[in-house]
């Protein structure tokens, strides 16, 4: 579970707050769109969940970790349980697709080669690109690269996937494909928080969305059949 209690975040003392008195609860396994124009505070929400930044006021609790009592070690433990994808994919061009996806699995030494191979094959099949395992990122299209970034993000079986404008650089058809893959990941039990400025992407999905503007939540919509949160 992720909870924001009266969170205010200011990057500079003299600048307007990026977030102001935000209260938000996201349950395990939930799918939530964060939607709003540039500068609305969507990315700051994701950074707070990932504990890349900390609130200026208030508290954020992520899977039992609270920003009020974090240290470097706890931040690393949390990050190992959170998957992240970015608008620009951020794949490593100097190694194969397989190695890109295997990277988070190799980092901590708890898996042997066979286990890594099995896991990489599983997540790459989830995004439909196992047959591209030996390719280099530059040999793939933008949509395919984002699918690989998704595979890497879920390789470590995170409890939540944070996606920051994952479809911003993609055409509508490819963007839909990406959203469907993310929904499939969500159906397997991983919570998803997807930040986007594209309202049309949200409207047809039927998923909960949190609309933001100038650092505040202006609407928190969920399908009436599932219950309104706030």
């Amino acid at each position: 579970m992720i909870k924001f209690f009266h969170v205010r975040k200011s990057y500079r003392g003299d600048a307007p707050a990026a977030l102001d008195d935000v209260n938000l609860t996201i349950d395990d396994g939930e799918f939530v769109f964060l939607v709003g124009p540039s500068g609305a505070g969507k990315s700051t929400i994701l950074k707070l969940i990932h504990m890349e930044v900390f609130p200026s006021e208030g508290e954020v609790i992520v899977a039992g970790f609270t920003t009020a009592a974090m240290n470097r070690k706890k931040v690393l433990t949390l990050r190992r349980r959170v998957g992240v994808v970015f608008q620009d994919y951020r794949l490593l061009g100097d190694r194969s697709i397989y190695e890109n996806v295997a990277l988070p699995l190799r980092l901590f030494g708890q898996y042997n080669e066979r286990q890594i191979a099995e896991r990489v094959e599983f997540v790459m099949n989830q995004v439909g690109l196992w047959h591209k395992a030996d390719y280099r990122p530059r040999e793939l299209s933008g949509g395919q690269q984002q699918r690989i970034a998704l595979a890497r993000a879920v390789a470590n079986q995170p409890f939540v996937l944070l996606a920051d404008e994952p479809t911003a650089n993609l055409d509508p058809h490819t963007a839909d494909e990406i959203i469907h893959i993310i929904q499939r990941i969500n159906q397997s039990g991983t919570a998803v928080i997807l930040a986007t400025h594209k309202m049309e992407l949200v409207m047809n999905s039927g998923e909960r969305y949190v609309r933001m503007d100038q650092g505040t939540i202006v609407e928190d919509w969920v399908d009436p059949l599932r219950g309104v949160r706030s």
């Binding site: 990932h50 690393l76 433990t77 990050r79 951020r90 490593l92 990277l103 980092l107």
Partner: peptide, 13 residues
């Protein structure tokens, strides 16, 4: 920097 960034994202010390 890309490698360092990804390592930090996935929680490498």
């Amino acid at each position: 920097q890309d490698l360092i960034h990804i390592m930090r994202v996935v929680g490498a010390s």
